[in-house]
């Protein structure tokens, strides 16, 4: 039992490591793995003695609740597994968040606005590369991030993310970036 759990855990960690290359320039990703690892370790000792009910509880605990608020103000509640980016989460749940560069930090189309500043502060600071892309995002705010750079972790459970209402700011003569 212990062994099975452990190998499951290892697989989980490997999965994260495999994912890592696309984020290698983002040093902050490492702590995410560590968190994940520590969290899973704590749970492991708990699970070895547990029954099916807590097994389900465990499944639930490895996810965070995220609310997307779309352009019409409609709220979409989703559960996102640890380690998954908000861009991937949006796509898995058919939420209309563009991802032109598929999470490689080369565009700003997955721009989201963290609706609560406390949650915004819980995230690692954006890297220069992310800020370079945010420079070009439509309707930039003080709590804007790229969806591909927000990775699900326990601290952000309950985060609310708004999809920017950019079209209404779009002028025929060209968009002027909002002062920031």
């Amino acid at each position: 039992m212990f062994l099975t759990k452990f190998s499951g855990l290892a697989a989980h960690a490997i999965k994260d490591l495999v994912k890592a290359p696309s984020f290698t320039w983002r040093t902050s990703y490492v702590p995410v793995i560590q968190n994940n690892y520590a969290q899973a370790l704590r749970r492991k000792s708990f699970c070895t003695t547990a029954d099916k009910v807590s097994e389900e509880g465990r499944e639930e605990k490895q996810k965070v609740s995220v609310t997307f608020v779309d352009k019409d103000g409609e709220e979409i509640h989703v559960k996102v597994p640890f380690g998954m980016s908000m861009l991937e989460a949006a796509h898995e749940n058919d939420i209309e968040l563009e991802g032109a560069c598929e999470g490689s930090l080369a565009c700003s189309t997955c721009h989201v606005i963290v609706m609560d500043v406390d949650y915004y502060n819980k995230l690692e600071d954006p890297a220069d590369e992310e800020n370079d892309m945010l420079d070009l995002a439509f309707g930039l705010t003080d709590t804007s991030r790229l969806g591909c750079q927000i990775i699900a972790k326990p601290e952000i459970d309950g985060i609310r993310l708004a999809l920017p209402v950019a079209t209404r700011n779009f002028a025929v003569d060209g968009y002027k970036p909002k002062p920031h």
Partner: peptide
Amino acid sequence: LKRGPTGIIGTNLYCAEETVA
């Protein structure tokens, strides 16, 4: 052709949204 030669790939997303509207 609609707004002059400025902006990035993503700018066209909003530009297209407006035209399609």
